[in-house]
């Protein structure tokens, strides 16, 4: 019976983010949080496996103090326990720092048969957490999963690649990252939501992870993030006949490199 750990990220809900027209900066003041989309698939996949085979699902997250808002949400989706690390370092953490923190926490928590992540987060979509975790933990890694089956300690994973699918078989423990197509995350029932309050939520202090200042120093620095707004050129062709208008239009599109 597999013991699963799902790493998830609490991100801002992109539908609540507005772009300020004056400088295209992002207004996140009214944005609510959510469990990153593909991470929900990872939670669902681990929960489905355990529902079918027995075992246990645990969840682990690292973020700012806002991650506390995610705890009941994640527990309502299936995991038995959630471990959370809230620290200001998460504000500027890059994929390297995130993986250092999560890997240290996993070493502290013990061994797992399956460690699942979403393929990429809803906000930055770096697609690095699973790969970095596997390197730090010395475990095999299978990414881009759209199908997963587990028999004993053997994991059979179907990977969706650019122009083909690939079936990989690997002995656990293993780190896996899943795509959004692997399943349909459940909508928690009201009893699952209310039952989440009774499940254990355990804090891990970052100071207890034995990380050096260098391991918490991000290598990548975000200087700014700006929104993209499509601008209309408002070009109107007013030739007498349609053919001439079409000709001008196609020439214009070709000049823009669109044809």
């Amino acid at each position: 019976m597999p013991k699963c750990l799902v790493c998830y990220k609490w991100t801002l809900d992109e539908k609540d983010i507005k772009i300020k027209p004056e400088d295209l900066s992002l207004d996140t003041s009214r944005a609510k949080g959510k469990i990153s989309d593909f991470d929900r698939n990872a939670i669902e996949e681990a929960t489905l496996i355990v529902e079918q085979q027995g075992g246990s699902v645990h969840a682990l997250t690292y973020g700012t103090s806002a991650v506390q808002q995610s705890l009941k949400d994640v527990l309502s989706r299936g995991p038995d326990t959630v471990y959370w690390i809230a620290d200001g370092s998460a504000e500027s953490a890059d994929a390297c720092v995130t993986a250092n923190v999560l890997a240290s926490a996993i070493r502290k928590l013990g061994s797992y048969d399956l460690i699942l992540c979403g393929e990429g987060s809803s906000d930055l979509f770096n697609q690095q957490t699973a790969a970095r975790l596997s390197a730090l933990l010395g475990l095999p890694c299978v990414t881009y999963l759209e199908k997963l089956s587990v028999e004993g300690d053997t994991v059979k994973a179907t990977r969706k690649l650019a122009d083909c699918t690939e079936v990989a078989t690997v002995k656990g423990p293993v780190v896996l990252s899943v795509l959004g197509t692997i399943n349909k995350p459940r909508i928690p029932s009201l009893k699952q939501v209310l039952g989440a309050a009774k499940k254990p939520k355990k804090e891990i202090k970052i100071a207890d992870l034995g990380l050096t200042p260098e391991q918490l120093q991000p290598k990548a620095i975000h200087k700014s993030v700006k929104g993209f707004v499509a601008k209309r050129k408002n070009i109107v062709y007013k030739e007498a006949n349609a053919a001439a208008n079409v000709g001008k239009l196609t020439s214009s599109l070709a000049a823009e490199g669109l044809l």
């Binding site: 808002q69 009941k72 949400d73 309502s76 909508i187 928690p188 009201l190 939501v193 989440a196 309050a197």
Partner: peptide, 18 residues
């Protein structure tokens, strides 16, 4: 409350899906 927000979210997700 947190539970009420999650229940509201479940209803929202239910409405979108079903």
């Amino acid at each position: 409350t947190e539970e009420q927000q999650l229940i509201e979210q479940s209803a929202h997700d239910f409405a979108k899906e079903y």
